[in-house]
Design a protein around this nucleic acid. Structure first.
Length: 158
DNA sequence: CGTGTTTGACCCGCGC
DNA sequence: GCGCGGGTCAAACACG
């Protein structure tokens, strides 16, 4: 409330738990939660150099910038929540245990490699699982983030 | 024209 | 080693 940016995009935010509003797939949710916590604990190195010549892995930069993942669920009809950032879709895959595909977004900014994936639950169509990965290195645009901030907060509280 | 979406191919880790 | 599941690339396309 004191900042313009959303709380789940802050680097200093601890690992928030996934909203346990689902009345089904509790085991799966717990598994997902554990996975996310594990991912948040360890650092994920991104080495996607296999495109050109994957003769060997280049670990030139093993910086300790741990990519944190943060997932939460919201109840909304539309799966695109404008959080004040500009996202460019770069992929869409179908997950096995879900009838709806999962969309992959990336923040369109120079040097800001923040990824975000949006998945809709197959059981409850209204439930949208949003997973953020990384931290923005630039301020967000301030047009409608305020409104959506309130909406998301309202949806996140039990 | 510039920017974002679509969509199949490709890559990679993992289990068998 | 091979198939599968998941993540990404990038060319083609759509739209202002």
């Amino acid at each position: 409330m004191e900042n313009h940016s959303l709380p789940f995009l802050h680097p200093s935010l601890p690992n928030h738990e996934i909203q346990t509003n689902s009345h089904g797939d509790e085991g799966k949710r717990k598994k997902l939660e554990a996975e996310y916590q594990c991912l948040g604990a360890k650092n994920i190195s991104e080495d996607r150099d296999g495109k050109v010549k994957s003769t060997g892995k280049k670990l030139e930069e093993h910086n300790e910038s741990r990519k944190q993942k943060f997932a939460f669920q919201t109840r909304s009809r539309v799966d695109i929540l404008d959080d004040g950032y500009r996202w460019r879709k770069y992929g869409q895959k179908t997950v096995k245990d879900s009838t709806f595909p999962r969309s992959y977004y990336r923040c369109t900014h120079k040097g800001c490699n923040v990824k975000k994936q949006i998945q809709r639950n197959s059981k409850d169509e209204e439930v949208v699982v949003t997973t953020y990965e990384g931290t923005h290195t630039h301020p967000a645009e301030e047009f409608a983030a305020h409104q959506n901030f309130e909406i998301i907060l309202r949806q996140m509280q039990p």
